[in-house]
Write a protein that binds this DNA or RNA. Sequence first.
DNA 1: AAAGAGTGCAACCGCTGTCAC
DNA 2: AGTGACAGCGGTTGCACTCTT
Length: 302
Amino acid sequence: MGRSPCCEKEHTNKGAWTKEEDQRLMDYIRVHGEGCWRSLPKAAGLLRCGKSCRLRWINYLRPDLKRGNFTDEEDEIIIKLHSLLGNKWSLIAGRLPGRTDNEIKNYWNTHIKRKLISRGIDPHTHRPLNEKTTTATIKTTTSATTKATQLDFKNTPPQSLAEISLLKSQLDFKYNNNFHSSQYSSFNPKKTETTSVEENNCTSSSMTTDEEQQQQQQKRESHQDQDVNLDLTIGLAPTQTSSANSAESRLQQPVSSCQLFGSVLTRPVCLCWQLDGERRELCRNCQNQNQSSKRNHSYNGL
DNA sequence: AAAGAGTGCAACCGCTGTCAC
DNA sequence: AGTGACAGCGGTTGCACTCTT
């Protein structure tokens, strides 16, 4: 059953790579390109497992890697993205050309954490260290349980509408209260065309009232000169068939029902978020939507 | 000069989702 | 449909190097 093993583990080298191994790997990829890490070591004459080759190439040998110290601008981009994404190093790396997730992760752990602490900012919550944790959280009371739910985004991207809403409010707080200009004062990036929080990418949203939408529009306008292009996309899942709103189909669908900010949601909510249109996280709803079409494409059709 | 502590980073480990068989 | 490997990711470790005493 299943595939055959990628390599004979007992015959593979471990530890630091030699110059010769590096050269072999580079030569092979230069000729054959990336991909199929399983067969690469054997084909390249390397006594390494494919996983190790991939890591070595991505983190060290790739020609487009940027060497040298991180700039202050890169620092601040990392800090901002980390405050939004948590430890999603690969996503953060996707916004920093020439930097790898491993490099950013190491840099975060060795430099930025300390930098933030010296500024009096908790590197996990991106809140002032002396601030009580309750300010980084909200309490939501559900009608069913009246249980207080604390939310923060220390290490994970937002998973629910409540978390998305909190994230939005946190961003609004930061930008509207000069939070970033006082806490992240050394950042002086070029102004970019910025859309801070963009609704309606998937479909139109009924998650907010008209009043809230007006407020968000005002906030968007006020954020247009902000620095990092977050381009977070929040909206409803792609429209189901017209029968999707029937009581029966609603029962069969995953339902996100919460009472928050005056809105009761009984439809699946698209929680996709997108960074500059390049790399995106799909919510489960959209993943399910795309699943069937996705299967029609070959895995490495890239 | 030597030893211990601190730091930086490459590489490994283990997990998860996806895919091949 | 079930099993197991692959690809990719984040967390952790180990070691070389630097700093401090």
